[in-house]
């Protein structure tokens, strides 16, 4: 989180190197699990990390963890590179991320995300495999059965609150 702010504010290359060290290998693994070979995955992972530098100002820590935000960039690149399909994006919120997001709110969201990760790790094997297949692009939407028991309630409420605060701040 702090690394992204330093990239955004001062083009800090050391901060970028730290993020790269953690996330580039994870993006590469994500792409390979989605069907890319090692060469393509390496290439796209570099591209994803370069995009992260360029778009650091769009990251909103009150609405997504760093891992979640990088996932969305990697997913979009995967669609371009592997499926050559278009995925229209929702309209940007007219106000974008706050210049100085509430630290406590942002921290709470990051903790909520960590908790979600733990919860996913303890799901029954069958349900977990289904979710992985869905996210690595092996299931159509009609094959994604009703997902009961996914612990999404608190994280959703938190994002919802962040949206409401932004909307309120705009009035």
């Amino acid at each position: 989180m702090a690394c992204l702010a330093r990239i955004r504010d001062s083009g800090d290359e050391a901060a970028f190197a730290r993020l790269f060290g953690h996330f580039a290998p994870r993006v590469k693994a994500f792409l390979m699990r989605s069907g890319a070979d090692a060469t393509l995955a390496e290439e796209v992972a570099q591209d994803v990390m370069a995009t992260l530098w360029r778009k650091a100002h769009l990251f909103d820590p009150a609405r997504a963890s760093v891992a979640t935000w990088i996932f969305t960039i990697a997913r979009n690149r995967r669609i371009d590179a592997l499926r050559r399909a278009r995925r229209p994006e929702p309209e940007d919120l007219p106000w974008g991320p706050e210049a100085a997001p509430d630290q406590a709110e942002a921290l709470a969201l990051q903790q909520e995300s960590a908790r979600l990760g733990q919860a996913l790790a303890t799901l029954p094997e069958k349900q977990r495999v289904l979710i992985e297949k869905a996210y690595f692009g092996e299931l159509s939407h009609s094959e994604i059965a009703e997902e009961t028991g996914l612990p999404l309630g608190t994280i959703k409420s938190r994002i919802r609150l962040a949206l409401e605060r932004l909307r309120h701040a705009m009035k």
């Binding site: 993006v27 997504a64 963890s65 891992a67 979640t68 996932f71 969305t72 979600l116 990760g117 996210y135």
Partner: peptide, 8 residues
């Protein structure tokens, strides 16, 4: 999306 982040 945060499930995607956790899988990443």
């Amino acid at each position: 999306d945060s499930i995607g982040g956790a899988l990443l």
